[in-house]
Amino acid sequence: MSDFHKLTVSAVDSLTPNSVALTFDIPTALKATFSYVAGQYITIKHSLNGEELRRAYSISSAPSSGKLTVGIKKVEGGSFSVYANEEIKTGDLLEVMPPEGRFTFEAKQTTQNIAAFAAGSGITPIMSIAQTVLENNDTNRFVLVYGNQNPKETMYHGEIKKLQDTYGERFAVQWVYSRSSEPNCLFGRIETSTVNLIVKNKFKELDFDNFYLCGPEAMINLVSDALKGNGVSEAKIHFELFTASEAEETIAEDLDGKTQIEVLVDDESFSFEMDQRHIILDEVLKKDIDAPYSCQGGVCSSCIARVTEGSAKMVKNQILTDSEVAEGLILTCQAHPTTPTLKVDYDDV
């Protein structure tokens, strides 16, 4: 199911001193495979020093562009992000999984007013969504609140300015800088007061259809709570974590049994016994089963599977809805088996 394809890097563009945009050449035969919806991500697989790395990166280009571009910010102490910023060059081949993800914009024929709150590299999927919203209907409006340290470290700063020039009042930006005081920009971080400024003051005349939040978990939780405090329904709030806080692992402390597990992947069935204190995906990968995965941190949605017999409990879940969990879906990178037998189906999702 981990269906990777070798793609050629057609462009490497510097976004900031610590981030780059990689654009891939998509062969004609793979155009349909790599078609995407605004807001989705790709997973890149690469081996460094004998270790296989998988990293999920949101697509920043709009589907209408005919391009597949991702923005990658260098992470201190990171592996692939440092490699991408310092060594990848035009013409290199990388293994890429087709686009996936649920943080997407659904176009409609009626006018839509959309707002987004992003911090740092959380801007990448928002760039694709914003462009698509504005292209979809010439009456659509898009409001972006974007937090960074300073303009120099702001990914896609130039591209955002171009959107302002192209779409005028239909595209509004509220810049927020934590280490630089700039004209007509807010100083500090995105706070509850920032949300109130947008919905109660600057754009109080707009009835927003949806809000898209992307960035660190703390920022997402703060903005989400502030929006709900302003009467916004949870159904209108969509988010994608770029970094998540560490959840305290307490589930394993209460487990000491063994589980006979059956895993279905690509219509093949695999069976083995595992310790309930261990994570399902970890044990699946140890058995060399080609299950889908990417971040292994509960941030993306690549490893979702359905429990068809038995039960499993997740350490954390910021992706699946309550109804999806009730239907048996789990993030296998976060789940412990809790019954003597368990059947997990990666195909039925």
Score class of each variant (00 low, 15 high):
A118G: 08
S64V: 11
S61D: 01
C300G: 07
A56M: 02
D288G: 01
Q296P: 01
I251E: 08
E249V: 10
G120F: 02
K108L: 11
T339M: 01
N140M: 05
E191L: 09
E182V: 14
F239P: 01
D207N: 14
F272G: 03
F80R: 12
S301E: 05
E273R: 13
T154M: 11
H278W: 06
D275S: 08
I126P: 01
S269T: 15
S181C: 00
F105Y: 15
G188K: 08
K108D: 05
K287V: 00
A115T: 08
T43S: 14
E249H: 14
L281R: 11
A107H: 04
T192K: 15
D256M: 09
V133Q: 07
V349N: 11
D348N: 15
M127H: 05
I279H: 04
F80S: 07
S178Q: 09
A218H: 08
F203Q: 02
Q149T: 14
C185G: 02
V75H: 05
K228H: 03
E283I: 07
N317W: 09
Y41I: 02
S61E: 02
N148V: 02
A312G: 14
T16C: 06
Y167M: 04
V223R: 11
L206A: 11
N201R: 14
E159L: 09
V232G: 06
V145E: 01
E95H: 14
E273C: 06
D267F: 04
S10I: 02
V199C: 03
E87G: 00
R179P: 00
E159M: 11
K74I: 00
K73P: 00
M314H: 09
L329D: 01
F80P: 10
V9H: 11
T332V: 09
G91C: 05
E191A: 10
K200R: 15
L329H: 13
Q334K: 12
K236S: 11
I42E: 04
P340R: 12
I289Y: 11
E76F: 08
D13S: 13
D254M: 10
R179I: 03
L186P: 02
N136P: 08
F80I: 05
I237N: 06
L255G: 06
D347Q: 12
A119E: 03
G147M: 02
I126C: 02
L264N: 13
I261F: 04
T339D: 02
P183L: 05
V82F: 03
T132P: 06
V9G: 09
I126M: 09
S64A: 15
A326S: 14
G71Q: 04
K6V: 07
Y57P: 04
F103K: 04
